[in-house]
Computed example of a mutant assay.
Amino acid sequence: MGVYNVHERLLTAEKDAVGALVDALAGDGDPLWPHGSWPRMEFDGPLTTGAVGGHGPIRYTVIAHVPAVWVRFAFSGPRGFDGFHEFTVLPVDDEHALLRHTLAMETHGTARLTWPALWRPLHDALLEDSLDRAELACTGSVARPARWSAYVRLVRRLAR
């Protein structure tokens, strides 16, 4: 099954400021990843090509990184995830940039069932929380904070 999943937020900030959020992923004081509510993103070293890590049971390797512009991660787990996810900073004008997260993969085996039933709702909630953190970092507030669905709350409760 082919999966193409995009989350994005138009931010009132210069592209370099948004790019700095991406470059701080998994670092001390990471302002982008919602580590208070979700498993922390961690790597075996700095965020650079070849770094290995992930968050919770989701494992990946950094396969490309253009500082302040783009970082791409290739999945290595869970089994059946064959593809990548990435953060991209797209300048809009001098005062705005678009922060986009793209996930593109083929699912195989049991992942054909677990992606839509389990992983996708959690992924979507996590990414909207991440974009809220980006907006908060850039503007000091969040205009429309993301809300977890009842299903996401149930799955998280059952996972504990």
Rank of each mutant, 00 (worst) to 15 (best):
L47W: 02
H101D: 14
Y151H: 03
G50N: 07
F75T: 01
V52M: 11
R40V: 12
A74S: 13
R112G: 13
T102H: 10
V155F: 00
H85L: 11
W115M: 05
S149A: 03
P67F: 07
D44H: 02
D124P: 03
P78G: 01
L113V: 14
S76V: 12
G83F: 07
P145F: 02
L126Y: 09
L154Y: 06
R72T: 11
H108K: 15
P39R: 01
R112V: 11
A146D: 07
G83K: 09
T102Q: 09
E42L: 11
H108C: 07
V142A: 10
T110N: 10
R100S: 05
R79Y: 11
E135S: 10
F75Q: 08
L113Q: 03
V152R: 01
V152K: 00
L98A: 01
L103Y: 06
L122N: 06
T114F: 14
F81V: 12
S76Y: 08
D82A: 14
A137I: 04
A111G: 05
F73Q: 10
D82R: 13
G140K: 03
E42Q: 15
T114R: 08
S76C: 11
A150C: 00
G50C: 02
L47P: 03
R59N: 06
E86L: 07
P78N: 03
P78M: 00
S76E: 13
A104Q: 13
V92D: 06
R120V: 00
A104K: 12
S76L: 08
P145C: 03
P57C: 00
Y151I: 01
A125Q: 04
E135I: 02
A74H: 12
A97W: 08
W70L: 14
G77D: 12
G45N: 10
V62L: 10
R120D: 11
V155Y: 00
H65C: 10
G45M: 06
D132I: 04
G45H: 04
D124I: 02
P39W: 07
W70Y: 15
V152M: 00
A51I: 05
R144T: 15
V142M: 07
V69L: 04
R40E: 14
S149N: 00
S130Q: 14
T48I: 09
H55W: 12
R120H: 15
M41E: 04
A68W: 03
L154I: 00
V155Q: 06
P46W: 01
P39I: 05
S141F: 14
A150V: 09
P116C: 08
V52D: 11
H101I: 09
P145Q: 07
A97Q: 03
A117D: 00
R144E: 15
M41I: 15
E106N: 14
F75E: 04
T114P: 05
A143M: 01
L126C: 11
P57E: 04
A146L: 05
G45L: 01
G50Q: 03
G140Y: 09
D82L: 13
E135R: 05
R153H: 07
G56K: 04
H123W: 09
A104E: 15
H65Q: 09
E95L: 06
L127P: 02
E128L: 14
T49V: 15
V155R: 06
D94L: 00
G54E: 08
L118Y: 13
P46F: 00
V71D: 03
T49I: 13
L154T: 11
D44I: 09
P46E: 12
